[in-house]
């Protein structure tokens, strides 16, 4: 990461280096609103403390409002305005994934890791998600590392693909070539039996 090896660094420090990620199985904070969840994404840019909390009006409000503005931009970008104050517990999975993407994006990372953002989504939600990922890359200039096995999505939005089978690299290159690789077909789509 930026010329440094970060293997073995504590997770909360990695975040400060500009890496943000989402989870395959969702890791939103239940019992909090969508807004609070996304605001947590700003954590590395904020300085919460006991005294700031005690003297909120002088010490914390400017920072809260400043960060809220950035969060609002992302909320608008991902079209989450209408569910801003809802608790995340009750949202459908497609929206939860979008909230998680928002939470990762507000951290303004240089590197965004998306672990199966399309898992459990229907075709329409996948379409939305792909659009958002592309927009995030183009407008916000983040590098996206996408972990995914929906072939249509990969061919649609990836620049470069690295195929793994049980931890071993079996192919890499531009998507069109990789999906034609016989070993990739064998591992992901299933070989032509007979």
């Amino acid at each position: 990461m930026a010329g440094k090896n970060i293997t073995g660094t504590a997770p909360h420090k990695v975040a400060k280096l500009g890496v943000a990620r989402t989870f395959q199985n969702l890791a939103l904070f239940n019992g909090m609103s969508v807004l609070d969840n996304i605001l947590l994404g700003r954590h590395i840019h904020m300085h919460p403390g006991v005294f700031r909390t005690a003297f909120y009006w002088w010490a914390a409000r400017p920072e809260e409002v400043e960060n809220r503005k950035i969060v609002e931009e992302v909320i608008e970008f991902l079209q989450l305005e209408s569910i801003r104050y809802e608790l995340v517990d009750g949202l459908p999975i497609g929206l939860k994934k979008r909230v998680e993407l928002a939470r990762a994006l507000v951290a303004e990372p240089q590197m965004l890791i998306l672990d199966e953002p399309m898992a459990g989504m229907n075709q329409e939600e996948k379409g939305y998600m792909s659009r958002f990922i592309l927009d995030a890359r183009d407008e916000r200039g983040v590098s996206v590392l996408l972990i995914e096995h929906h072939m249509d999505v990969i061919i649609g939005i990836c620049d470069r693909v690295l195929a793994l089978n049980y931890g071993e690299m079996i192919a890499s290159g531009i998507p069109k070539d990789v999906v034609k690789d016989p070993r990739v077909i064998e591992a992901y789509i299933g070989g032509s039996h007979g």
Binding site: A10, P11, H12, K13, V14, A15, K16, A20, R21, F23, A27, L28, F29, N30, G31, M32, D36, L39, L40, G41, R42, H43, I44, M46, H47, P48, G49, V50, R52, T53, Y56, A60, E63, E64, R103, A107
Partner: peptide, 22 residues
Amino acid sequence: TGLGRALVAVREKDFAAAILGV
């Protein structure tokens, strides 16, 4: 404030909190 949010994050899912830099 951020402090309250960070505490709830630690309560709910500490691994996810760590990923966010908490």
